[in-house]
């Protein structure tokens, strides 16, 4: 079975790279979906550039979400910050209740069209899984291990950096993975406010009634999300294995 999974993984990666680097060679596959001689492959921009821009926005947003969510998670699990736990939890929850399209819509007048509204929407939407997983990870460190760490004379900072965070790392990574994958899909809506990304391909398809474009945009985004999910899950397993957790 693991051999099978590896083959599927490689095939998906090859398909994605092949399509992004040489899209025209896939033209015969998409031609049946077009009408009246419309182009079968997206021709209003370079697919590879768009995919990279898409990934860039998603990664920037994830980096910002991670920084804020992990920082906040650490703060509210310290004795001095415990009073902020309920409020932070409510705020982060609100971040995900706010529909990303609505965030885009209301941030456009504040920051203008382009990547910025998308970054803000993805940032707010991606906080919740990372924040919750950070908290669970930090709160479920075995109490004896923490007791031993303090008992041996680690300062609060040393204990956090060399015991608590390493033990919580697999869960934090899982949160980042969930957040990233949700946002690879969500980022497509950024194209409605002129952010560069794969949403452009889909929207061009919707506007010109070209199913081939819609399918291309969707497939590339989906493949990227799946590969990212798979790669991060692998990384988590590896860290768990080398750190001998679970």
């Amino acid at each position: 079975m693991p051999g099978m999974a590896a083959i599927l993984r490689l095939a998906a990666l090859a398909l994605l790279l092949g399509f992004l680097l040489m899209p025209q060679s896939f033209a015969p596959l998409f031609t049946p979906l077009t009408q009246y001689g419309a182009p079968p492959i997206y021709d209003q921009g370079n697919l590879l550039t768009l995919a990279l821009a898409h990934l860039g926005v998603v990664c920037c947003a994830a980096a910002a979400s991670t920084l804020v969510a992990v920082g906040l998670g650490i703060l509210v699990t310290r004795p001095s910050g415990a009073q902020f736990l309920p409020l932070s939890r409510t705020l982060v929850n609100i971040g995900q209740t706010f529909p990303p399209v609505a965030v885009l819509a209301v941030t456009v007048p504040l920051v203008g069209f382009g990547e910025k509204p998308t970054l803000i929407a993805l940032f707010a939407y991606g906080l919740l899984p990372i924040f919750e997983n950070t908290i669970v990870g930090l709160q479920t460190c075995p109490p004896q291990v923490l007791e031993a760490a303090s008992g041996m004379g680690m300062s609060a900072r040393q204990r956090l950096l060399s015991v608590e965070l390493p033990l919580a790392l697999p869960l934090i990574l899982e949160g980042i993975r969930l957040s990233l994958v949700i946002n690879v899909g969500t980022a497509t809506i950024g194209s409605t406010v002129a952010a560069k990304g794969l949403g452009e391909v889909i929207i061009a398809g919707l506007l010109s009634n070209n199913n081939a474009f819609i399918l291309q945009g969707g497939l590339v985004t989906g493949l990227m999300a799946i590969l990212l999910y798979d790669a991060l899950a692998g990384l988590e397993r590896r860290i768990c294995r080398t750190a001998h957790l679970e």
Partner: peptide, 16 residues
């Protein structure tokens, strides 16, 4: 605490 040894039930070894 660094000058005083401390051992507890269930050892509290760092699993990682």
């Amino acid at each position: 605490r660094r000058r005083i040894g401390y051992a507890i039930q269930g050892h509290g070894l760092f699993p990682h």
